[in-house]
């Protein structure tokens, strides 16, 4: 496993202001945040080989040091089902400006998308956010904050604090969200904020809920301080 400090050091020394998705998730995984199975592939052939190991369907994403907004650039393909699809889509992604490699991910199945993040408040310092994720984050703005460090009570109180808190209960055949595990993720993100002055912001969005109720980070961004 990569040393999390070196991820920040490398990004900073090459003048970058953020860790890309792959680096951000490696960083978070080092602190126990569950992330989706994924691997970087440098070519279409390699991407296919990795997809076979992970098992179809997979998610294919354009990856590069400067690729912060993949979705807007058309750099995310969900539900890639076979060799034909991975080869044609993989070729297309590699042609997007800034794309240096292909990120092959297991396809997490689940209806619920949450968000967990970190920001630095000018009065209180590192603050953890929790709320509805994906496209709902900024449309519904159903999010709550707590100041790090968080207790287990704080983390659970955040969950009941969002308006749509019933989303954490069993839903359409999917299990109730594992709130203990979710709480641990929120607490961990707060700890990272306290421990790493060089991290300005974190987004884990979406933090997807698997059908069995386990949260998994499928996309993440870590913004570094100036």
């Amino acid at each position: 496993m990569t040393d999390p400090k070196s991820l920040i050091y490398n990004a900073k020394s090459s003048g970058r202001k953020a860790l890309n998705e792959y680096e951000a998730k490696s960083f978070l995984a080092a602190f126990g945040v569950p992330i989706c199975r994924e691997i970087l592939a440098s070519s279409v052939d390699a991407a296919f080989a990795e997809a076979v190991k992970i098992g179809f369907p997979v998610v294919l994403k354009a990856s590069g040091e400067k690729m912060a907004h993949k979705t807007e650039a058309g750099g995310v393909v969900l539900n890639v089902k076979n060799e034909l699809e991975i080869r044609s889509e993989g070729q297309r992604l590699l042609e997007i400006p800034g794309c240096e490699a292909l990120l092959v991910q297991e396809m997490i199945v689940g209806a619920r998308e949450l968000v967990c993040g970190l920001t630095r408040d000018h009065s209180f310092g590192p603050s953890v956010m929790f709320g509805l994720g994906g496209i709902l984050t900024e449309t519904l703005k159903d999010t709550v904050f707590r100041i790090a460090p968080l207790t287990m009570y704080d983390a659970k109180d955040m969950m009941s604090g969002i308006k749509a808190n019933t989303i954490l209960q069993p839903l359409r055949g999917e299990a109730a969200v594992d709130t203990d595990l979710l709480a641990k993720i929120l607490i961990t993100v707060g700890e990272i904020g306290l421990q790493f002055e060089s991290i300005a912001e974190i987004d884990i969005n979406p933090l997807k809920i698997c059908r069995d109720g386990k949260p998994v980070a499928v996309d993440a961004l870590i913004v570094l301080t100036g």
Binding site: A68, V115, G117, L118, M129, T143, F145, A200, E201
Partner: peptide, 14 residues
Amino acid sequence: AVSHTAAMAGSNQV
């Protein structure tokens, strides 16, 4: 703000 989190973090919310 670059991230969603920072964009959502009005002083009032925090």
